[in-house]
Design a protein around this nucleic acid. Sequence first.
DNA 1: GTCTATAAACCGATAGAC
DNA 2: GTCTATCGGTTTATAGAC
Lengths: 242, 242
Amino acid sequence: MSVIRGARERARTEVTAAIKEEARRQLAAEGAARLSLRAVARELGMASSALYRYFPSRDDLLTALIIDAYDAVGAAAEEALAATEGAAPADRWIGVCRALRDWAVDHPHEYGLVYGSPVPGYAAPQDTVASAARGALSLIAVVRDARRDGVLGPPQGRPLAGEVRDDLAALGSELVPELPVPTVAALVAAWAQVFGLVSFEVFGQFNGVVGARGPFFDQSAAALAAQVGLAPADGAAVLPAK
Amino acid sequence: MSVIRGARERARTEVTAAIKEEARRQLAAEGAARLSLRAVARELGMASSALYRYFPSRDDLLTALIIDAYDAVGAAAEEALAATEGAAPADRWIGVCRALRDWAVDHPHEYGLVYGSPVPGYAAPQDTVASAARGALSLIAVVRDARRDGVLGPPQGRPLAGEVRDDLAALGSELVPELPVPTVAALVAAWAQVFGLVSFEVFGQFNGVVGARGPFFDQSAAALAAQVGLAPADGAAVLPAK
DNA sequence: GTCTATAAACCGATAGAC
DNA sequence: GTCTATCGGTTTATAGAC
């Protein structure tokens, strides 16, 4: 009986995987807003009603795809983080950023699903937030490690306005209490800015503007590293020693 | 007869405006991918076939909405550019960025239409590019004016890699030949990064992360100004005089 | 868990009368 | 320029047999 249940569960996860795979194909062709359970079923040769045994509604399928996408981009970032252990902090930063960007370029539609315009009428449930944070946490880890090793400089930019400071002090104290508040602020801004670069590339805004996109991205990511206080590896310090 | 034609044309532009207005409402409710001519007609109390006299296809309506959105964001940027004439370059930069951001926050769905995930199956025709460039040109104008007035510093960051340099030299020479290539590179990167900040705010990625979003945006925009070589207004120069 | 059948909608686009 | 009518599709979701 446990063998039977094992077989059943295996079959179930296989069908679930096939459904998600086909759904991802449709995501590319039709977009998240027009993702259709019926079309997925048709392509898979099953009755549409059978799908409801796996995903009780269209939104549940969408949620599963979103979590998968966040997990995939998070895993790519974590892999880059682990692979660069011991390297210069600025190079680790660039490596993690590059992993995020490479994943996005390889999976443009899944990227758009999570970092593009929200799907109208769909509200992401709480289950997605843990997966959503994984990418950011890898970038934070680079900075935290640099701080631990005593090689974190001050972030660039003017002193923080009071309102912003209070705001990010609260965020920092629960997430990375060992980092100075201005560093947390620079980190959040840099995080958003990395995705600005990625989105412009993936969404076609660089068409006819930037050709060598990989090198351009690396160049820009290096500047962002300096902005959060990670000195360049080549010794040409951007920041005063202080 | 010219009076009649005048009246006809007036009626036509009025109906066209009503169609676009209703379409924008649906954009918010359903998203661009599900924009439906039929639903627009129903809401306006006309037969669906009547719409085809104004827009020959769904994609043509979409194109009109996209051009309108680009023009609106471009006009907001140009207005800020004109309003800050004579101010310190960094403040002008922040002012134009702020205008872009404010427009996006006020028109999230139209913003998503042009700067979010592309609409699947829709390819923007050439007509959109002139309108699309208007926002960028305002930011470029700030830097060009600073250069003209002799107050443009070198951009932050490492020297450009050769590939990137060639690429942006070509872009710069046809767009703003008076700017150094590294400045052009910093400008393009900053342009994308501004939209990273805006998109994160508009698309909800800052929910639960950043509270005081206006001040946070200004803070980040100021750092970007320094990155492209616009010294802060308060005299605390970030860059060496050189 | 899968099927058929069905309800009750919806879509873009066109033809042709007025 | 607006209408009705129509073509040939589409959708989510449920009921009930097997």
